[in-house]
C-alpha cells in the first residue's frame, strides 16, 4: 500500500456567495522513500494539498490515507497526535518559536511527546551534527541566518522520525546557493535514512532536485513525471 493516497480529492473555499475550487478531483499515490515536489504557479493549490495531507485541513470531497490511517475516521485529538508523531512540517519562513533557542525549537516536538530532557538533548545534538549546525544550539532564531533557521526547522521535523516530511516552499526566502545546500541536505537525508519528502515549490531549482514532479494547475493534476534528480 502507498504511504500517501489521495482519492478524488476536492477542496472548495467559500468566498462571499461564490465558491473557489482550490483542488479539484486530485488522485495521487506517493510511496515511502520518495523525494517528490508539487509544482505549479501561485494559487494552483499546492499549499491546500499539503495542508490536507498534513491533517491541518479537511477535504470537501474525496479521501486521504496516510501511513495506513484514514483521516475521516479520526477525531481532532487523534489527528493532532498523528501530526506530532508521523508528520514533519517545514514552512516557508518564520516558523521557529522566537523565544526558544535553536536546540529548544528542535526539541519541541519531542517535548510535546513527553520525552525526557536528557533523551531529547541527545537526539537533537546528533541531528544538529548531521545537519551541520552544531554549535548553534543556544542561539535564538533571530541570531540565525535564513538557511540556519531552515536547518533547525528540518531538525524539528525529522526528530520524531516521521513517516513523511511536508515542506511548503522551503526555499522561497533563501538565496539560491543556500537553497541548493538545503536541498542537497534533504536529499541526503532521503537517501541515507529513507525519509519521505513531499515539497511544494515553483522554484526551478527545487523542481530540478526532485525525483518526481507533480504539476498542478488551477487545482487539477496537470502532469506527474518521474525524473533523474539533479
Amino acid at each position: 500500500m502507498s504511504l500517501i493516497s489521495l482519492n478524488n480529492l476536492s477542496k472548495t473555499y467559500p468566498l462571499g456567495s461564490q465558491k473557489i475550487a482550490a483542488v479539484q478531483g486530485l488522485t495521487l499515490e506517493i510511496q515511502a522513500g520518495e523525494f517528490a515536489v508539487l509544482a505549479g504557479p501561485s494559487g494552483s493549490g499546492k499549499t491546500t494539498v499539503l495542508n490536507i495531507v498534513g491533517a491541518l485541513d479537511t477535504p470537501t470531497e474525496g479521501s486521504v490515507n496516510v501511513d495506513g490511517n484514514d483521516y475521516s475516521e479520526m477525531n481532532p485529538k487523534e489527528l493532532a497526535d498523528f501530526r506530532l508523531r508521523r508528520i514533519g512540517f517545514i514552512f516557508q519562513s518564520y516558523n521557529l518559536i522566537p523565544v526558544l533557542t535553536a536546540a529548544e525549537n528542535a526539541e519541541f516536538t519531542l517535548m510535546l511527546q513527553g520525552m525526557s530532557t536528557l533523551k531529547r538533548r541527545k537526539i537533537i545534538s546528533g541531528i544538529f551534527g548531521e545537519l551541520g549546525i552544531e554549535g548553534l544550539e543556544d542561539r535564538r532564531p533571530n541570531d540565525l541566518s535564513g538557511g540556519q533557521q531552515q536547518r533547525v526547522a528540518i531538525a524539528r521535523a525529522i526528530a520524531p522520525q516521521p513517516a513523511v516530511v511536508l515542506a511548503d516552499e522551503p526555499t522561497a526566502n533563501l538565496d539560491s546557493s543556500t537553497a541548493e545546500d538545503l536541498l542537497q541536505l534533504m536529499r541526503r537525508l532521503n537517501q541515507e535514512k529513507g525519509t519521505t519528502f513531499l515539497f511544494s515549490s515553483h522554484d526551478p531549482l527545487v523542481i530540478a532536485h526532485a525525483e518526481r514532479v507533480i504539476s498542478l494547475r488551477d487545482g487539477r493534476l496537470e502532469s506527474d513525471i518521474q525524473q533523474e534528480a539533479g
Binding site: 493532532a80 506530532l84 512540517f89 514552512f91 516558523n95 519541541f108 516536538t109 510535546l112 521535523a157
Partner: peptide, 16 residues
Amino acid sequence: IREFGVILAIGATPGR
C-alpha cells in the same frame, strides 16, 4: 496567531 498555527501544526493540542 501565525506562531500558534505553527505550534498546532507540529502537533500541540489546543489545550496546550
